[in-house]
Nucleic acid binder design. Sequence first.
DNA 1: TTGTCTGCAAAGCGTTTGCAAGCGA
DNA 2: TCGCTTGCAAACGCTTTGCAGACAA
Lengths: 136, 136
Amino acid sequence: MEVQRNTKQKQVLLAIMKEAGRPLSINEIYSLMVQQLPKIAKSTIYRNIDSLLDQNLIDKYHFNDNEIFYRIRADRHDHKHFVICDDCKRIFDLPACPIHALEDAMGEEGFIIKDHQIQISGICKDCAKSGSKNHK
Amino acid sequence: MEVQRNTKQKQVLLAIMKEAGRPLSINEIYSLMVQQLPKIAKSTIYRNIDSLLDQNLIDKYHFNDNEIFYRIRADRHDHKHFVICDDCKRIFDLPACPIHALEDAMGEEGFIIKDHQIQISGICKDCAKSGSKNHK
DNA sequence: TTGTCTGCAAAGCGTTTGCAAGCGA
DNA sequence: TCGCTTGCAAACGCTTTGCAGACAA
């Protein structure tokens, strides 16, 4: 890996992701960044996001069958999953990772889990109460 | 929902998916279908896949951070997850669904899980033995 | 100065859409 | 016949790439 230069764009990107702490889409990141760097290009964001992914400083999440979000890791061992409400689209933490339990079981069968992703969607408490649209 | 017409294209698509029984990508489906229907268009496949999804006759799976596969359901209660080997790209069954256990726990917190997806990747027994490329 | 990084525009790629012709019921 | 389906081509949306100029080191 080449030496990384500490550009304004990278600083702002990291600052925004730290400030948010939650999963952000490229568009959210973009609209936050334009406020500070009016000429920022999305391609720059994509490239910097890629390098943060390579460095394992952020994680990539998929929601709703193809909306992609990125979230900064609090530390090296920060590992988290989320659930999204079909109604209000808010994102909630999943209390524990259900895959860890599987790793041992799979290991016994000879399959070594290297990576995993979970997408869970449903109806959050508030939306269930107010009884809005998507309850199929 | 309007009445569904029983076209040659739908018959062949279903036959191919039943025959395979495993997750297939659009490209796999396409190349199998062209053999029987040389003029088939991918858009036709996409449209028919969509209607099978609406009817809950097939499931949609994501692997490898955005390869999409479709698999026919053996029956209404058929519910399955898979793991993919980073090396040989073969797809293996996951013995049990780790999300079911979560549904109760989340339900107590007021979040009603409606849908979920899991992607697990790693190294299968055979590739671990032969020690090929991707063991990072 | 050097070589990485950026903004811009164009290209890519998988998927969706519009439309006239085809064809199942 | 009627109108859902199809094949074709074009459009779409998101992401990636090529390139010349900008700018960390």
